[in-house]
Design a protein around this nucleic acid. Structure first.
Lengths: 121, 121
DNA sequence: GTACTGGATCGACGTTTATCAATCCAGCGT
DNA sequence: ACGCTGGATTGATAAACGTCGATCCAGTAC
């Protein structure tokens, strides 16, 4: 606990405080963070990041089978990653007949940029 | 891998292709991703995100004791999170006497913006 | 109808992660 | 020298995560 207030003398270092007095502690928007946590969690995997880069490189859509062909992972694993990306709002799926076409949800990517901006303030 | 690609030839479905022909198998540059994965992993925790927001709100530094006082977590847990943030290059620590002062490493935050830009291409 | 195929879901297994209590280390003060 | 204090390190534990094989479901083609 920051108990350094008991001796306010200017003994050796007057500013030997542990930190700045910490006023009002801007506790305000440090609570909106949960929304970004799920987003970052979805991005915190190399496979998922690579999928997103694949989608970003192609402006069009990409079907799941092609995504799957790009990795040495099993089909359930890719399906699992796509599910996480979908639930995070990072990709959108469109069923065309039997095949699923995925597109990047750039609106959610913008949220990542918003986080970067929030931390640059 | 029994699910090997059978390369759906034009059996009967003329244009019912699963996706665009997929030429050149763009396997190229989707490899830079590993660098971003560690960054996102460090961000993929609510506590760590909140610490970063605290640091971003204050332009100055923040000592570990004050960070610890903000959470209901034990001291080793906070120390663990700070370690991960440090190893990810997101914060820089400066030992002043007994206390450790942390500052946000905005250069690394810029890397997050770079990822957002990469995905917006 | 049956047969086939793209994809999701279900268990299960091994690894990683967040958390804690206990301990250890390094400065500071008397 | 001591004691005290801020922080890091060390196990240990429980939850979450990534991966797979097996299975199931929904379209399509025959």
């Amino acid at each position: 606990m920051p108990r350094a207030k008991t001796t306010p003398q200017k003994s050796a270092a007057d500013d030997a405080e542990c930190c700045v007095p910490n006023p009002s502690t801007g506790r305000g928007r440090a609570r909106t963070v949960g929304s970004y946590a799920v987003l970052c969690k979805a991005l915190a995997d190399e496979t998922r990041l690579e999928i997103l880069v694949m989608l970003a490189e192609r402006t069009g859509t990409l079907c799941a089978c092609e995504i799957e062909a790009h990795f040495d992972l099993s089909q359930p694993t890719i399906s699992h990653h796509l599910r996480i990306l979908r639930e995070a709002g990072l990709v959108r799926v469109e069923r065309r007949g039997t095949w699923n076409h995925y597109t990047l949800e750039r609106q959610t990517v913008a949220k990542l940029a918003a986080l970067a901006a929030l931390l640059s303030t």
